[in-house]
Computed example of a mutant assay.
Amino acid sequence: MRVVYRMIAVATGVVVLGAGVTVVLLNRGDSATTTAAPRNSADVAVPSVVSASSASGAAAPAAGAVATPGLSPLSSAPPSPPPSTGTSATPSAAAVASPAADADAVDPALAAALKDPRVPALPKDVRRLRSLPGRAAATHSLIKDRRSGVALPRFAKAWALAKPAPFASRQLLPMAKGASYRGMLVSCPVPIPEQKTLRDTAFLAARWTLNHHPSGATITWTASQPIKAGKRKGWLLGYTVHYSLKGRKRVSAAALALVDTPETKPAVVFVTIPDSQKKRWHDINKVMSSIKAL
C-alpha cells in the first residue's frame, strides 16, 4: 500500500509540475504576443507618420514656390532671395524722379510762354509765309553779322543803318509823320533760353519781340515753317502784332527767323513794320528769303 501511495503521490506531483510548466509557457507566449503587438503597431505607425510628414513637406514648399520662385519643393533650407528682374516697383518709382525724366520736363521759360495770353500756341501744321503787299526796297549788299553768325540784306535807301546796341545789327525806317512807332530790322544771338527744338526757341523769341512793340501788344500767327539758311536749318514765324496807339487799334506785320549757327547760340533775324508804313511790308519777304548762315 505504501508503494501505491508513493506512486500516486509521484503522479500527482508530475501532474502539478506539468501544469506549472504549462502555465509558465502560456504566460511566456502571452508576453511575447504583448511585446510583438506594440512593435507591429509601431511598424505601422512610423510609415504613416513619415507619409504625413512627406505630404506636409511637399505641400508647404509648393505654396512657397508661388511666393518665392526658384525654391525647391522638397528643400528644408530657408529660401534664397529671388534673383533681381529689374521690374520691381521701386526702380519704376525711382525712374519717375530720375534726371532723364526731369530732362523731359517743360522748360520754365517755355511753360510761362505757353500760359501768356498775349501769345497763342503755334499752329500744329506748317504754314508758309504769304507774299505781303508792296514792293521790296532795293538792297545795297549784305550785312555780315559775325557776332550772330548770319548775313542779311542791307537795304539801300528806304532803310537806314542805326547804332546796333542792344542788338548786333539794326536798320530803321524813317519815322512816319504823326507816328510814334516805325519799322525795324535787327539781328542778334537769341536772347532767350534755347529750347530742345528750333520751333520752340523761335516761339520764345517771338514772345520776346513784344518788348519792342507798344505796350499791351498781342500776337496772331500768319506763318510757321522750317527754313534753310544756306546749309543751316532754321525756323520762320510770321505774325501780326495787335496794339492800340492813342486809343486807335493798329497792327504791325512782323516775321522772325531763327537760324541754327554752327559755333554760337542760334541767331535771330527779326523785322517788324507798322501799318503806317505798310508800303514796305513786302520787305519782310525780301529779308526772310535772303538770310544766310556765315
Results as ranks from 00 to 15, higher is better:
R2N: 14
M7A: 15
M7R: 15
T12N: 10
G18S: 06
A19N: 08
G20P: 00
V21L: 12
L26W: 10
S31G: 08
S41G: 10
A42Y: 07
V44Y: 11
A45Q: 03
V50T: 06
P61E: 10
A62C: 03
G64Q: 10
T87K: 09
A94P: 11
A94Q: 15
V96M: 05
A101Y: 07
D107N: 01
A109T: 08
A109L: 02
A109N: 01
L110G: 04
A112T: 05
K115T: 07
P123M: 04
L129R: 10
L132D: 03
R135G: 08
L142A: 15
A151G: 02
R154I: 06
L161M: 12
F167N: 15
A168Y: 00
L173M: 02
P174C: 00
M175V: 08
S187W: 06
P189W: 02
P191N: 13
K196A: 04
D200S: 03
T201V: 00
T201E: 00
A202V: 12
L204H: 10
L204E: 13
L210M: 09
H213L: 12
H213P: 15
P214N: 12
S215C: 13
T222F: 12
S224C: 05
I227K: 06
K231N: 06
R232L: 13
K233Q: 06
W235L: 01
L236A: 05
T240L: 08
A255F: 05
A257H: 06
A257I: 05
L258F: 02
V259S: 00
I273V: 15
P274F: 04
W281H: 04
